[in-house]
Design a protein around this nucleic acid. Structure first.
Lengths: 123, 123
DNA sequence: ACCTATAGTTTCTTCAAAGAAACTAACCAA
DNA sequence: TTGGTTAGTTTCTTTGAAGAAACTATAGGT
């Protein structure tokens, strides 16, 4: 009675955090501690500068990621998880584990499909 | 060295599961056990039939949701989490909790912004 | 003959997120 | 003065997801 419309809003909240590359960014920052912009780009080839920037801005605005600019030339900007952001660590790592297992499961299902007809022959 | 490109793929996997309404669907199914199509629609006003159907199909295809059709007129179709889907329960509930707290935090920040200037007066 | 209920499907439209590619700023080194 | 480095921004295009609204199938009731 008080938990029903809840579900919707919570999902909405999670979406802010889950945007194509945000999980990957956070996992990398948790793993490496602190990273420069170019390092993030390096461990995540496939994301464009524009998108990476905007995802980082989003996370920063939510208080999950901290951005530190060093006034140098060439520029140096370091990103890291805030303490608040770290409250997501367990969830993110569970997602990571679950996702890995899920991929394995799907791969297995592809193989077992091929051998499905000859099921008891091969074992 | 073996965990870097990983992050990308895992995020990709999670995306399949996180699509606008999927978290809400799963949380509801976990909470209520088994639900008819119309019941899902009822607890999630705001989602159209088309979208609800397609999200359910996705979840079904991933082996997370089970769909049971009763050959009746008018039709009766029941949805529930599979055992495999239930392996997401902990993650989903943690997301639920975290999301709730996150919303509260943001609400608080809105209020505290108003009173920020008079900070030590009020306490 | 018509209405109702349930669980969809179909078609058309809209919109935001994402991608590609080029451009910028600032300073240093050769 | 040309080039290199880093961390972006800008512009334009593409794509996919989602929404709105109407249509479908089927049987039982009146």
């Amino acid at each position: 009675m008080d938990n029903t419309p809840d579900h919707c809003r919570v999902a909405t909240t999670m979406e802010m955090i889950i945007g194509k590359w945000k999980i990957a960014i956070m996992l990398n920052l948790i793993h490496y501690g602190t990273m420069r912009f170019s390092e993030l780009r390096h461990v995540m080839p496939g994301v464009t500068q524009k998108v990476l920037t905007s995802q980082l801005r989003d996370l920063e605005q939510e208080g999950i990621v901290k951005r530190v600019v060093y006034p140098q030339v060439p520029p140096k900007v370091e990103y890291s998880m805030t303490e608040y952001g770290m409250s997501l660590q367990t969830i993110l790592e569970m997602m990571h584990e679950w996702g890995k297992a899920h991929l394995q499961r799907k791969t297995q299902m592809l193989f077992s499909k091929d051998t499905d007809n000859q099921n008891d022959k091969n074992n």
